[in-house]
Structure formats: structure tokens, C-alpha cells
Design a protein around this nucleic acid. Structure first.
Length: 960
RNA sequence: GCGGAUGUGGCGUAAUUGGUAGCCGCGUUAGACUUAGGAUCUAAUUCCUCCCGGAGUGGGGGUUCGAGUCCCCCCAUCCGCACCA
């Protein structure tokens, strides 16, 4: 408690002060003891599921940005509960991850220990804020009882494939049956041995092992998923990442690409986030076209190229497939380009070009991701000496190799149309290749491409110089060309996605072990009844000397197939004991299905029961950061769709409504040191020229409302001990700037300090008051006093509650507040609800209103926002049960109806005077009243008005 | 480059969705009560002004009786993707 009370106040009065430090722990204990927030999986009430993105418990603890979303969702969850819903509002921890492991490598502390400590600290901080989580349902991704089901799902993914016809996952056994029955995809099935069959099936499993080009981060010693790499650097740590071919587990998320796009139309997410996902999935429609190679007729030097023959061609010629989104420009193709990884290069390169091409390919392959991305603008490439034939024009066109064509997209080969693609244009200019215009913006308006400074990429206009499509609109031409190539049997309409399969292996210790062992080099999953496969102890968290993942250090890490248990590696020579997989699963594994596990977290027999998921369905409201748009939110949707296909989840989409809370940025403070005198600090207003001073970050904890505490500043760091100040009005005014909240900028605000100083209710309200939840905004403690004052005022209203009847004005205030707050919560606009409360309390305080009839409903309205003080006052009003069990008050329109309205009267849109008219006033009455008004003559100048606009309850405008 | 947003007082923001721009809070100023105030209360606070008024929601145009809100063109900032054919 701050020393706010006057020395002369009596003990009784003192007791009546708003003492949050006493109230808050008291009711937190009460809720815990009463199990107020425990939720059952059945109820006659309607269900509602409010979920927060569970946190990774980092060593730094929470800062004020973390709880923002939790406060918003807690308000909504509490509100829904008061509205009569059975609300599931759980919390847990995403406890596996790199930082704990990095810390372990540095200190030798086991990640399990540090994780446990961090969780305890998080829990303490969360508890202080008074959230209504049902902690009975807590999950931790590193808990064997939890990751058992992560492993179980992996096994299911391994045992299923994606049936393109049915557009859903089906058991791999169904595929085997098809292959046995003589499926075209596996003509050799009958003659294959087990190993060959397993290898073939690997191409279909939803979790599969393959040699893939991965993002390898040598510094972290692991591979990373695409969303974990930005600009060639790892998201965590910012270390360089290189492309490397490695044998890795992957999830065939690309099989679900179309459904992931389609599903976005069914969910209530922000357009921007949906757009981010659409972008990431990157669906584009176009055509696949076979381009035959120009091979001297009697030569058969290209045996490998046979693989590229279109099956439908009765007289096969060696060809290769390209993908294009602009089939209409096929008449403008002047060269072809293959990616450096393309299999055909070796076979088509002419002997004279061989050295040059191989040199280029080697160079391109060895370039790191970062170099490649940094030099995007640089054109490089080499001619193979070979030619292809344009199937429509029968022209002979040269084939190049260049790294601007990517191996992972389409077929790794393109038809280049320099006139209408900026990259092809740059390449053509660099190598002096012909450029042919085949699209015009307006009919028949062409120019010489040699004079162009850039290509015409827009998909608008008309085709020109394009044989049978000349004169058509671009859209028509696209269709016509595809129809033609389909008719010719040299290509077809197709869709390409940018989305890549998700690499699922990490060469790390602190993650879920794969339930996989290797027999004869073929992976097998361990039987489901043996799960969980527990993470073994290791002596060392670094990779082994031979470059194996850390699990290579585990001695007891082999699978005894006969006795179904984990045994020592030394037994591997034994015929029934096999090595287990050494990599672990990535961070997104555990977070992909946690929302389902909350429904039934203690179930040992199943991921979650049919009853539980049948009751809760899916998440009604999900609150979390938009930074997960291309990671967790895609993986979770994929995971859920798979579980839906195999009959576990009951909804195709996991998160119905999603709200992204904005990031809270830091507000840094600066002091300005004179460049001439290193001990002189000049107050901001006195600086004449910013070049004379150096701005230095100063700890926000020794600054109050931008005024520096100069004494504490001298103590802050030794080099400032002798600081002198040039003050304005006796104060040192600091500068400020909005930056990322980070330790190094001394702008991190810890919620604990604020809870200690103002209480959790004030912090909760203030975080909401700061601005719209979705908006990124800087943290600024300056305004928190206002909210604190509000609570003191609110508290005072309850000094001596009377049972008298409320006046009409008081009831009006109350019902307006109920209506506004209810509407605001429904549309997730909590900053405006806080304002509404302030107005309400100000009005009641001014009217000295202490009526129970008003205060009781008001207490309930406040409960979602400020649960502690509401609970306290609720009990002071004489209730024995929790305010959480109260009923949300309804507003009565009757009290909101006005008797009369003050109309602004404007002339030609300019407001001139106001006039009071009855609420039920008709248009004629209003016009008559205005015309009779003394001022009207003055503004109309005596002339007859042209028109009078009357908007009931709003405005009267006279046009003259 | 492509895509998505945002732009309102000294600051955070609000505006019944096309109807009196600036609610609420911070800060600031003045006053009251005080031994004192970094407590509390009251009042003022968009800007200009000769106190009659005038201008004003990033800039410019348009639709309308009326535009912060709708349309077109710029400018600035932030975010996402980025050689994806």
C-alpha cells in the first residue's frame, strides 16, 4: 500500500481503502480452494472453448507483452461464463525447445531441470494476474503422458497416405492392397522384395523418410523448417543456414495444400493472416508442358532422357517437362532454363560445353543460401549446347542452366519468355538473347523490345505474334493454349504450390523421440501399446564426435523387437535388437495438437475421448501472435485435418475464430551526454543541436513520466557516478523512442513490479486500456495511474451501500454501461469498455450514488476485467458464492430511451445552432420547429430553403 | 518487386459505421484543501485569432445537403513473402 492515507484518518477509514495487496491473494486462494475454474466435459449449458497460445517457458520470465493476449482471452472467457456458457479455458507449456538445450550445453544443467524451474516461475507470474485457467487440465509437451500422443500421431501419419481421389488420408494398407491388385503406380510390385516395397511406400506415407535438401544450421547442429529460417539465417540465434542433402523425416503437408487453402474460407481470421497463409501455401494455376529435345534423328545418345518421355506419346521423343503460369506466352519463348540440380543436365550437355556447365553446377550447388539470396539481382548461368523444340512453333531454342530457376518449385525447368517475365528479361539482356513481344496492353500497339527497360509482366491485354491466339485477351489465350496442348497430348492444366513438405527431424536432444527403429535400414514404428517411448538420459547434450545427434550418447537406446522394450545398444548384434532413431521431433510437433488434448488431458487410453471431442468440437476463440502464421498455425491445421480424416477430430478446422494480439513494443528512454563534456547530461528541451550530444539508453525503471531520477542515475552505473545535469525547470527530461522490448535497451517492463505497485486488476485494465488488442503498441507505464485512480474511486462507491431505489438518471447510467460493455466485449473492443467503466464510475461518484440496485450489476460487469476487486465487493454486498457464478445483467431499453433530443441544425452543412425536440418528433414537426426558430431567418436570408434533410435523433440540415 | 495493413491534439486513443471530430486516460495549466504534496478535489486544454470568427482527421482531387468514414491519384510508416516461372 502506498502512503496515500492521511495521518489523521481513523483505523476504520483506513480499512476501507482499496488494499489490492490484501484482496488479490485472498481471492486467488479462494478460487483455488473452491476449484472455481474447474470445468467438466458435460453440461446442460452451451459449450465455449477459449484458448491461448501456450507459452514457451523461457528463463527470462514474462514481460508485460506476454499477458496481453491472456488478459483479453480471460476477459472473454469470464464474460462467456457469466453469459451462461460452460467455458473451457486451459493453459499449458510448450516446454520442448532450443533455448533450454542451448543453456544445457553451456551449463550442463539438464533441460528438464531448467524447464521445470522456468515453468514454476511462469506459473507464479500467471497466478498473480488472476486468470481463470483450469489448471487441472495443464499440459506440458515434454511430459511423457503428453508426448505419448505426439508419438502416437506420428505413427498414424506413418501408416497413412493421401488418397487423391477421396481427398483424405487413408491407411497405407489400402494402398498396399491396390498395389497388389496391379495398380499402375506400382507395376513391378509383385516382383519386389520387402525393402523395395518399403522404399516405394515411403513415397506415399504422410510421415516419410527421404533424402531431402534441408536447411542445415551448423551452429545449432540441426536442420530447420522453412518457417524457422529467414533470409538465410536461423530465426533462433541468427546463425547462417546452408542447403544440404540429408536423410530426414518429413510430413507430407503438401498433400493437404488445397484443403489448407480452402479451409481458410470457413474460419473467422483476419484477412491479413489468411493472406499470409495463402501466400505461404502459394497456390498458382498454370500448365505443365512437355518440350521435346532437339536430337539428331538417328542418334540415341540420351538414354536417361527417356524418363522424361510423356507416356501418352505414341512415338516417344526425349522431352522434359516445364511448369508455367503463362501458357499464353508460349509463342514468346526464346530459350529454356534448367535449375542446376536438374537430372537432365548431364545427359543433354554437349561435349564442348561439358566442363563449363559442370563447373557452373558445382559452383551453384555450393553457394550458401545466404549468398544466393544476397545476390538475387546478379545474373548467372551457362549454355548447355543443347536445344529444345517449341511444340507449337517448332522453333529450335537453346537450353541454359541457371540458379534463378529453383529445384524445389514446379519441375525445376522453365520456358523463358523474356518479354513478359522480369527474370527472363534480365537473363536475356545479360546473355544477349532475343526478346519477342507476344502481349500488348492495347490491341495492335507493339514496340521493339530492344528499346524496353523492363518486361511487361502484367497478366492483362491482348496476345500478339502468337499464331492462333493472336488478338485474344490474355485470359482467353491462356485457356486456348492449354486446350491446344491438351489436345496435342503434350501437356495439361495443373496447379502448383509453393508450400514444401515439413522437415520433421531435429538433431537435438530436448524434443520428442521418434517411435522408430531401423531393421535392415528400413524404418519401423514401435507398437502403439509401447508408447510413450521415453526420452533417454544422456551424458552430453552436444552432438557425438562422429556427428550423430545427442541421442547418440544414450547407451540404453535400442529396440528389442521380441520383448518390446528399450534395451542397451550393446545388444544390437542380437538378431531381435535394433537401433532406434537418434533425431527428435521439432518444436511444432508438440504444439500441433495440444488444443485437442486439453479436452481430455488425463486420458491414458486415447489422445482424447470421443465424448470429450464430441462435446467441445474445436476452439471457438484462439488468441495469440500473428508471428505463428506460417508455422504453428499451418502445422496445427494440417495435424487437425489429418486427425479429422482418421476420425478423431470432429471438425475439419481447429480454430474457428482467431484474434492476433499486437506486439507490445518497448518505450526506451534516453539521456543526452554532451560530446564536449563526458560528465554533462543535457535535458532534452535544452539541446540546441542533436549533433552536440550522444543519446544513451537509460533504464526505464529510473525514469518516471520521462523525468529522470538523477540520484538513481548516478548510482545506476559507475561511469555515471560523477554525472552533472543541465536541468529545465529543475527537472531532467529524457527523450524517448519506440523500440523492440529488449534487455539491451533497458526498456523491459516486468509485470511483477507493476502488480506489486498497482495490483493485478489495475494492470489488467491498463493493458486493455492501452489500445485495441489486435494493434501493435508501445508499452507506456505513464497512464497506469489513471486506471489506478479509477479503482480507488470505484472502491469508494461501496463505502456504505444503501438499499434505496435508484433514480432514473442512475438507472440510465447503469443500463447504458451494460449495453456498451456488452457490445464492446462481443466485438473484442476492450479499450472502449474500460473507458465506459470510467465514465460510469465518474457519473456515479458525482451523483454520490451508493445504491445496491446499481452497484450489484456493476460488480458483475467489472468481474471479467478486474476479478479480484469484483469478488471482494461482491462478497461485501453480502453474497456467499463467487461472482463468477453470477448472471450477466441484461440492459433494459426502457431506460435508454430519451424524452427529447438536441438536434444540431446546419445550413448547407455548416452547423449553426441546436434545437431541442421531443424524441417522437415527426419530420413535419421538426421542420416547422426549425422554420419557426428565430435564427433560421438569419441563416436562410429570408429565402425559401431548397431542401430540408431530417435524420431522426441525429441532425437537421437545411439547403438554401 | 508482390501482398496486407495503418496514418486523427504534446502522447495512447474514441467517434452510434455517411450525420455536432477529438469521448476516456496520460501530460500540461490554473485554482481549492493542506505544515507539505509525487495525495485528493474543481476547472481549462486541437490549432490560429484583432475573440467577430476561421482552419482542421498524411497530401491532392471526386461523390454527397453533409466525408475521419465511400471512390481515384500520390506520400509516409509498419508487417508478411520474396529469383515460386
Amino acid at each position: 500500500m502506498r502512503k496515500t492515507s492521511q495521518p489523521k484518518t481513523t483505523l476504520k477509514e483506513q480499512k476501507m481503502d482499496y488494499n489490492y495487496s490484501e484482496i488479490e491473494p485472498k481471492w486467488q486462494r479462494f478460487w483455488r480452494e473452491q476449484k472455481t475454474y474447474q470445468v467438466e466435459n458435460n453440461s446442460s449449458k452451451p459449450h465455449f472453448y477459449v484458448l491461448d497460445m501456450f507459452p514457451y517457458p523461457s528463463g527470462a520470465g514474462l514481460h508485460v507483452g506476454h499477458p496481453l493476449g491472456y488478459i483479453a482471452s480471460d476477459i472473454y472467457a469470464r464474460y462467456k461464463r457469466l453469459r451462461g456458457f460452460n467455458v473451457l479455458h486451459p493453459m499449458g507449456y510448450d516446454a520442448y525447445g532450443l533455448p533450454a538445450e542451448q543453456y544445457a550445453i553451456q551449463t550442463g544443467q539438464h533441460p528438464a531441470v531448467t524447464t521445470e524451474q522456468n515453468i514454476a516461475r511462469y506459473r507464479e507470474q500467471l497466478d498473480k494476474l488472476g486468470f481463470s485457467f483450469d489448471w487441472n487440465r495443464e499440459v506440458r509437451t515434454c511430459d511423457p503422458q503428453y508426448y505419448k500422443w505426439t508419438q502416437w500421431t506420428f505413427i498414424q501419419l506413418f501408416n497413412h497416405y493421401y488418397d487423391e481421389e477421396r481427398q483424405q488420408a487413408r491407411p497405407i494398407s489400402e494402398l498396399v492392397e491396390k498395389f497388389e491388385a496391379g495398380d499402375a503406380r506400382a507395376p513391378q510390385w509383385a516382383s519386389m522384395d520387402d525393402k523395395e516395397r518399403q522404399q516405394l511406400l515411403m513415397n506415399y506415407r504422410l510421415a516419410y523418410l527421404a533424402d531431402t535438401a534441408v536447411n542445415w544450421c551448423p551452429e545449432l547442429g540441426t536442420v530447420l523448417a522453412n518457417d524457422e529460417v529467414v533470409g538465410g539465417l536461423s530465426v533462433r540465434g541468427g546463425y547462417p543456414v546452408e542447403r544440404k542433402l540429408m536423410r530426414q523425416w518429413s510430413l507430407r503437408i503438401t498433400a493437404y495444400a488445397q484443403r489448407l487453402v480452402d479451409g481458410l474460407d470457413q474460419v473467422e481470421w483476419t484477412d491479413s493472416l489468411k493472406e499470409i497463409q495463402r501466400n505461404w501455401i502459394g497456390r498458382s494455376e498454370g500448365a505443365a508442358v512437355w518440350f521435346p529435345l532437339d536430337v539428331p534423328s538417328n542418334e540415341n545418345v540420351l538414354p536417361g532422357a527417356q524418363a522424361y518421355m510423356p507416356q501418352f506419346d505414341p512415338q516417344p521423343v526425349p522431352s522434359f517437362e516445364i511448369f508455367t503460369t503463362r501458357p499464353d506466352t508460349i509463342f514468346g519463348v526464346t530459350f529454356m532454363v534448367l535449375c542446376p540440380e536438374h537430372e537432365l543436365i548431364e545427359q543433354i550437355t554437349t561435349p564442348d560445353k561439358r566442363d563449363e556447365v559442370m563447373q557452373y553446377v558445382t559452383w551453384a550447388k555450393n553457394r550458401s543460401e545466404r549468398e544466393r539470396q544476397a545476390e538475387v539481382k546478379k545474373v548467372s548461368g551457362v549454355f548447355t549446347g543443347a536445344y529444345a523444340v517449341n511444340p507449337l512453333t517448332e522453333e529450335k531454342i537453346p537450353i541454359f542452366v541457371s540458379d534463378y530457376v529453383l529445384a524445389g518449385y514446379g519441375t525445376g525447368a522453365i520456358m523463358a519468355v523474356p518479354a513478359h517475365d522480369s527474370r527472363d528479361f534480365a537473363f536475356a539482356r545479360h546473355f544477349n538473347l532475343p526478346i519477342r513481344q507476344v502481349v500488348t496492353l492495347e490491341k495492335d500497339v507493339t514496340s521493339d523490345p530492344a528499346t524496353w527497360s523492363e518486361s511487361m509482366d502484367a497478366k492483362t491485354g491482348y496476345s500478339v505474334n502468337s499464331g492462333f491466339v493472336s488478338g485474344m485477351k490474355v485470359k482467353e489465350a491462356m485457356k486456348a493454349v492449354i486446350d491446344k496442348i491438351e489436345e496435342m497430348g503434350i501437356g495439361h492444366r495443373t496447379v502448383n504450390f509453393r508450400l514444401r513438405d515439413a522437415i520433421f527431424s531435429r538433431q537435438r536432444y530436448w524434443g520428442e523421440p521418434f517411435p522408430v527403429y531401423y531393421k535392415n535400414d528400413i524404418p519401423y514404428t514401435i507398437p502403439e501399446q509401447c508408447l510413450p517411448l521415453q526420452l533417454p538420459k544422456v551424458s552430453e547434450f552436444k552432438p557425438t564426435a562422429t556427428g550423430e545427434p545427442p541421442l547418440g550418447h544414450a547407451d540404453i537406446w535400442a529396440w528389442d523387437e521380441k520383448n518390446l522394450r528399450v534395451v542397451s545398444k550393446s545388444l544390437i548384434d542380437n538378431k531381435t535388437v535394433f537401433p532406434l532413431e537418434l533425431s527428435t521431433m521439432p518444436g511444432f510437433a508438440g504444439s500441433s495438437g495440444y488444443y485437442l488434448r486439453y479436452m481430455d488431458p488425463h486420458n491414458d487410453e486415447a489422445y482424447f475421448s470421443k465424448e470429450a471431442v464430441g462435446y467441445w468440437h474445436n476452439v471457438d476463440l484462439y488468441v495469440g501472435g500473428a508471428e505463428h502464421g506460417t508455422g504453428h498455425l499451418i502445422y496445427a491445421r494440417f495435424w487437425n485435418k489429418f486427425l479429422f480424416d482418421i476420425g478423431l477430430a470432429v471438425e475439419d478446422e481447429p480454430f474457428k475464430k482467431l484474434v492476433n494480439q499486437g506486439m507490445i513494443q518497448g518505450r526506451s528512454n534516453f539521456v543526452y551526454r554532451s560530446k564536449k563534456d563526458n560528465n554533462l547530461f543535457i535535458s532534452k528541451g535544452l539541446i540546441k543541436n542533436m549533433d552536440d550530444v550522444t543519446a544513451i539508453h537509460v533504464d526505464i525503471n529510473i525514469v518516471d513520466n520521462d523525468i529522470l531520477d538523477t540520484d538513481r542515475f548516478r548510482l545506476w552505473r559507475p561511469e555515471f557516478a560523477d554525472a552533472r545535469f543541465e536541468l529545465e525547470d529543475g527537472k531532467y527530461v529524457c527523450g524517448w523512442e519506440i523500440e523492440k522490448m529488449s534487455k539491451s535497451m533497458y526498456n523491459v517492463q516486468n509485470p511483477d513490479d507493476l502488480v506489486a505497485r498497482y495490483g493485478a486488476d489495475t494492470l489488467r485494465m491498463y493493458e486493455m486500456f492501452l489500445g485495441p488488442v489486435e494493434q501493435a503498441k508501445p508499452w507506456d507505464t505513464n497512464g497506469i495511474e489513471g486506471v489506478f485512480r479509477f479503482f480507488k474511486k470505484f472502491w469508494k462507491l461501496y463505502d456504505s451501500v444503501s438499499n434505496e431505489n435508484a433514480t432514473k438518471a442512475e438507472l440510465k447510467t447503469l443500463h447504458q454501461t451494460i449495453k456498451k460493455v456488452t457490445d464492446d466485449i462481443e466485438r473484442f473492443s476492450f479499450n472502449t469498455s474500460v473507458s465506459t467503466f470510467m465514465i460510469c464510475v465518474n457519473e456515479l461518484a458525482t451523483a454520490k450514488c451508493n445504491k445496491r440496485e446499481i452497484l450489484e450489476p456493476l460488480t458483475i460487469l467489472m468481474a471479467p476485467f478486474a476479478p479480484h476487486i469484483s469478488e471482494e465487493l461482491w462478497h461485501q454486498l453480502g453474497h456467499q458464492t463467487s461472482v463468477c457464478d453470477a448472471e450477466w445483467p441484461a440492459y433494459d431499453e426502457h431506460f435508454l430511451v430519451e424524452d427529447s433530443f438536441t438536434y444540431p441544425v446546419s445550413f448547407n452543412g455548416k452547423m449553426r445552432f441546436t434545437i431541442e425536440l421531443p424524441a417522437n418528433c415527426t419530420q413535419d414537426d421538426a421542420i416547422a420547429a426549425v422554420m419557426a426558430h428565430a435564427d433560421t431567418q438569419k441563416w436562410t436570408g429570408g429565402k425559401e430553403p431548397k431542401k430540408i434533410i431530417f435524420v431522426p435523433k441525429r441532425i437537421i440540415n437545411i439547403v438554401c
